[in-house]
Amino acid sequence: MLYPEPMARLMAELGRLPGVGPKTAQRLAYHILRMPREQAQALADAIVRLRQEIRYCSRCFNLTDVDPCRICQDSSRQQDVLCVVQEPRDVMAIEGTREYHGLYHVLHGALSPLQGIGPENLRIKELLSRLQHEPIQEVIVATNPTVEGEATGLYIARLVRPLGIRTTRLAQGLPMGADLEYTDEATLAQALVGRKEIS
């Protein structure tokens, strides 16, 4: 089937998105074609603005539209507790609990030698540098309870402990193998309150 070039191009771009196969791409493209013009324009603008305005906070590496991010700038937050997470969406999940009032550090992934992801591919150097320059008393390791998340958490704990900083992890009770983002807020809040020292 030969589509006019703009249609074919949109379908090719949509097809690159995760979970979108050729059929879905085709359906979405037709849907966009039939949208009111303003709505299609709003979608295009949202994509462009996302890439123009969203960047990583230079301190905690969370997603932000201002640098440093709003959490890093908020002086009412506890400045001596740092919660280490894998992804920006984990920050959102923990913020949703309203149980945590400290700072964050986003690693952007977990160790996975099978996929060639080593410590140098995560924001670990930056984490250690923060621990040297900021008055952090406690590091909460909140990596996902997957095999990779656990190993990453342990690796970080081993680096942090010699610095004389208290290292804790979320209490068990999280479903094994689950992602933080899927955990409901009540469970997550409980896990935060019941966090444990990493031995």
């Binding site: 160790l111 030698p113 410590p119 095999v147 656990e150 190993a151 990453t152 342990l154 690796y155 081993r158």
Partner: peptide, 21 residues
């Protein structure tokens, strides 16, 4: 495998974390 291939005697730091898991 990567350690074997590297020919270096120094243990790759994350190995201990995988030991634990």
């Amino acid at each position: 495998r990567a350690w074997q291939a590297s020919g270096s005697a120094a243990e790759p730091p994350p190995l201990a974390a995988w030991d634990q898991e």
